[in-house]
Computed example of a mutant assay.
Amino acid sequence: MGNKEVIRCLVVDDEHPAIRLLSGYIKKTPGLELALQTTHPLEALAFIKKGLADLVFADVQMPDLTGIELIDAIKESQIKVILTTAYEEYALKSYEYDVIDYLLKPITFDRFSIAAAKAKQRILPLLPVFGNDYIMLKTEYRLQRVDFSTIFYIEALGDYVIFYTTLGKVMTLQRMKNMEELLPKDFLRIHKSYIVNINRIDFFEKGKIVINKKQLPVGETYKSAVKLKFGL
């Protein structure tokens, strides 16, 4: 188990040459990973809403959904945005939003690298740090160590997750999808709102898991995985 220091990038532009250029830049930049490239902003929006990207490179002018409209549609999420365009007059408008940077086409690799560095400064501090048997969580006032063995379950609450442990609750700004991907195999997603430590389960019956006297529902999407895990 290591630190998650890779930023998952999404590139959306209605021009294929622009997509190829940015995708190539991402692939040769340490710390960045290309998660999706698409000419369809609605596909990008659906991908973002699934929590599968950390950073979006979005063209300002696109059919169906402009880059500005895309920002409006995802403003409640944690995802960060870098806008791209061939029109300089959109730069001022972009800074009315909390974008990381604004790239004017044609985009050089040097200019891209500056934007990538800004993105790392904004995004990486939000990502959890893992040890072999613990996770370091950023809370409002400090960085707190939580041992895996002390965790009962994890609950999603908007853009936050709450760790319920033997020592109390710890809340951190984080996506549930990140937790699902990064936690060790002793943790199991049972619901869109819950991940459980299987070593802390008291029993499982009638579509519910009980941990520390707390009944947690098993979502329809996750029932087959839960039954497979327990050989049911």
Rank of each mutant, 00 (worst) to 15 (best):
216 L>E: 01
174 Q>C: 13
156 A>G: 09
52 L>E: 15
181 E>T: 00
46 A>G: 09
183 L>R: 11
45 L>T: 02
174 Q>D: 06
176 M>G: 07
15 E>S: 01
194 Y>W: 09
212 N>E: 14
128 P>Q: 10
52 L>H: 14
25 Y>N: 08
214 K>P: 02
220 E>T: 11
6 V>F: 02
72 D>M: 03
182 L>F: 11
73 A>G: 01
73 A>S: 14
57 F>S: 04
102 Y>P: 03
174 Q>A: 13
110 D>K: 13
70 L>K: 01
64 D>A: 07
208 K>G: 00
10 L>C: 12
207 G>T: 08
25 Y>K: 02
48 I>F: 04
81 V>D: 10
195 I>M: 05
203 F>P: 00
56 V>Y: 08
106 P>Y: 07
154 I>T: 10
229 K>V: 03
199 N>I: 00
131 G>I: 00
42 L>M: 12
150 T>L: 03
231 G>N: 13
22 L>A: 03
161 V>L: 05
52 L>N: 15
90 Y>S: 04
52 L>Q: 14
59 D>C: 03
201 I>D: 05
7 I>N: 09
61 Q>Y: 01
27 K>D: 15
84 T>R: 10
73 A>L: 05
50 K>F: 02
67 G>C: 10
164 Y>W: 04
224 S>P: 00
125 P>V: 03
31 G>E: 07
222 Y>T: 08
19 I>G: 09
80 K>M: 08
91 A>V: 10
225 A>C: 02
109 F>L: 13
79 I>A: 06
129 V>Q: 13
14 D>L: 03
22 L>Q: 07
203 F>L: 00
85 T>Y: 05
185 K>Q: 15
85 T>N: 02
232 L>F: 13
118 K>F: 11
69 E>V: 07
91 A>N: 08
97 Y>F: 08
218 V>C: 06
189 R>Q: 14
206 K>S: 12
220 E>C: 00
37 Q>D: 14
126 L>T: 09
142 R>N: 08
187 F>R: 04
113 S>N: 12
3 N>F: 09
180 E>D: 14
139 T>E: 10
220 E>G: 01
210 V>P: 00
25 Y>D: 09
194 Y>A: 08
211 I>V: 15
114 I>Q: 07
182 L>E: 15
174 Q>I: 13
72 D>I: 01
168 G>Q: 03
112 F>D: 07
